[in-house]
Amino acid sequence: MPRLHLHLLSDSTGETLEMIAKAALAQFEEADVQRHFWPMVRSRQHIDRIVPDIAAHPGLVLFTLVNPDIRARLEEHCVTLGLPAVPVLDGVTEALASHLGQQAHGRPGRQHSMDAAYFARVDAIQYTIAHDDGIAHEDWEEADILLAGVSRSSKTPTSIYLANRGYKVANIPLVVESPPPSALFTLRRPLIVGLTTAPDRLIQIRRNRLLTIAEGRESDYVDAERVAAEVRFARRLFADNDWPVIDVTRRSIEETAAAIIRLLSERDAHLSPAAAGGAI
């Protein structure tokens, strides 16, 4: 398969565009793609400086440019070069404008403005970092989500991903010899989710972890019987407390986070006054 040069142009940080491109490329496992990333493109002159590189590496151009003059300049160059230029947000923006009955503001980087949601996300990240690995359990009631699982069951990376989505997340490692604090069993606000994984996959991850810290000795940390007992202990704890469980064995962090957000939404919908009224 020939290499595809993918040019990504954004008038802001480009985070949204990168996420869209990544999600789309995930559907093409064998694709050989080289990405060329151009953030903060906010003038015709900037477009003109980028075009020679696009011409030298012809391919597909994806963009999120709201200024009509700058967009037109890029599209003119792409027509001249015979290259497709795709405005990836246009379809969604037009559909929203139609249903909301108003025009989009057309301001670059508006989704990254320092509004209340931005500061809430910063607060969530700070909370999550401060409550990693079982720390500060006295503040767990402030969390939106609490993740529980044995060591190396993706608790921390999933917590950080969720924090970037604006959720306050605490997590706790489950250890057979060390019962979790009693506060875990009296929480009312957070959604408690158990993360589990296949023992053989867990052993592989733990071995890789030991290699990164130059620890080559065998230990209970990677002993097959020991690890299987840890997983059984965690599963029993989840079942005894009726906590939802997600098996992360074949899930990416993004997939695990999406499942957790769905669980939280379902719980909140069930607990909302409207849902309660409907049930009556």
Rank of each mutant, 00 (worst) to 15 (best):
D132T: 09
D132H: 03
D132S: 11
D132R: 03
D133E: 09
D133T: 13
D133G: 13
D133K: 11
D133I: 11
G134F: 02
G134D: 05
I135V: 10
I135E: 14
I135N: 12
I135S: 13
I135H: 13
A136W: 02
A136I: 07
H137F: 07
H137D: 07
E138D: 14
E138I: 09
E138P: 06
D139W: 04
D139T: 03
D139M: 03
W140K: 00
W140Y: 03
W140I: 06
E141Y: 00
E141D: 09
E141V: 02
E142N: 15
E142R: 14
E142Q: 15
E142V: 12
E142L: 14
A143S: 04
A143Y: 00
A143G: 06
A143I: 02
D144V: 06
D144M: 10
D144C: 10
I145Q: 06
I145L: 14
I145R: 06
I145T: 07
I145M: 07
L146S: 01
L146Y: 01
L146R: 01
L146G: 04
L147K: 10
L147N: 08
A148V: 15
A148P: 08
A148W: 00
G149K: 05
G149R: 00
G149D: 07
V150A: 13
V150S: 15
V150F: 08
S151Q: 03
S151Y: 01
S151R: 01
S151C: 09
S151N: 02
S151F: 04
R152N: 04
R152W: 00
R152I: 03
S153D: 01
S153L: 02
S153C: 13
S154A: 12
S154Q: 02
S154R: 00
S154N: 05
K155C: 04
T156N: 08
T158P: 11
T158E: 04
T158H: 10
T158M: 09
T158W: 04
S159R: 04
I160Y: 12
I160T: 14
I160A: 14
I160N: 12
Y161P: 13
Y161E: 13
Y161G: 13
Y161N: 15
Y161D: 11
L162E: 09
A163I: 10
A163P: 06
A163W: 05
N164C: 13
N164W: 12
N164H: 15
N164E: 11
N164F: 13
N164P: 11
